[in-house]
Nucleic acid binder design. Structure first.
Lengths: 137, 137, 137, 137
DNA sequence: GTGGTCTAGACCACA
DNA sequence: GTGGTCTAGACCACA
């Protein structure tokens, strides 16, 4: 039986942000999976539903879903809807690993410019792990 | 006395990258400062010099310098050129701190999707600190 | 006497695939005929049976059967069921021949992009002929 | 120096086809590369130019270009335009290899239904190789 | 000038 | 009902 996330969807979008809306959606869904708010097999709101909920254009939602599918995080079943992938197997893609390293490097550099010590940044990381969900990670 | 980084500049850009060129420049200069490749007071190449060196549009270099100045990382002395700021004092800007947290959160989420454990990510962070320059950080 | 493929049907569909389910069914039945898994005159499962077996919508099976009938691969005998055509005579439809050529052209182009040499592609073709059933082809 | 394909672009599109327009564009550009009509480093028409030439919507061209970039066939340089990739290195992606095999299997099955013998299909393949460009393949 | 993002809305294939 | 494709057109970041 298909689990339905029901009315408790927590997605929200900031129209004014410089981050593209479709990326905001992507990041929130992926974060939701890490947090456990979305479980494997969960049905996501349909393109129309979500676009109505967020008062944005359906195409924008569609783009977010398509990108997420390409990343292997969600999957669409024709005529039925879009779902969190059931058995996600992380593959150590060297490209994405390099991008992650670059991103983390940027974090370190920014931390320096904000006056954060190594210790403080490590603490920030630990806090995030605690907040996102200690069990899964 | 003014130190000139001279011909030994190590900046390089990838015009094929999806990351804007001006941001590539910004990130490399800031990383160079953290690494110690650029020292406080060092003179940066002029807009014209750098744009010629990198065969890119002068406006692009200009934009990078303007943004860096806004962030307080470099300063322009009228008629004399652009320099790495002498006595950079990090201020704990709440906005930028929030952005840093978001960036790090994204790192954690991506790490999950790449199958990296908390331990592995912490190690990656430690490696970066070691590589960027243990002394300063 | 009517041969019944019975419970030994080997059809299966992937509801996550981007290929429409009705096309998956069509392709598998046609492949089954080429392989000899389905013999001329064999009775196919009823729409209702197959849709139950595959847990898909009956309309989807119906569409697959209709298309196959249009192509002349199967035939419906009123009140008796659906059968693999007895004496299939290929007609050299210019349209379908053109489509086949286009499909093969696409294969050649894709092979180039995957780094497959002409020789390797020819070998792939030979392997497929061997695997699908040397006798009939 | 950048080679410009000039006015001799040969792309064309069939609005009535069931094949999506963006895929028609993709296939034609990839075929053009194999044929040598497009050389590595060649500039493609801009999104606006091509959409005007083909009297289709810019978004449709954009989608084709983005997909091609994802496949590694072309690359966009910010603010400058879109180019055939300079040093394309085919990587033997197992997924895409499997898809190619499926496509070729479909060709074999269709050939059977059209009454083409193994010999005739091999000849069709040989003809395509001859036509697309013996040198490169 | 160039591509990227987004809106508003239509039509279609599929299940 | 569901996502996929496409149009027409706006605005923006980047070079």
């Amino acid at each position: 039986m298909i689990q339905h996330n029901g009315g408790g969807i927590v997605l929200q979008v900031d129209i004014k942000s410089s981050k593209p809306i479709y990326k905001q959606i992507m990041d929130q869904i992926k974060e939701g999976v890490v947090k456990g708010v979305f479980q494997p097999g969960d049905k996501l709101p349909s393109v129309r539903e979500l676009s109505t909920m967020l008062t944005i254009n359906p195409n924008t939602v569609s783009k977010a879903y398509q990108e997420l599918e390409r990343e292997g995080a969600i999957e669409t079943r024709r005529g039925r809807g879009t779902f969190i992938v059931e058995n996600y197997k992380p593959q150590a893609d060297p490209d994405r690993l390099g991008q992650l390293n670059d991103l983390l490097k940027k974090v370190v550099v920014e931390a320096y410019y904000l006056g954060l010590s190594k210790k403080e940044l490590k603490q920030m990381l630990a806090d995030l792990y605690a907040k996102l969900g200690g069990a899964r990670l």
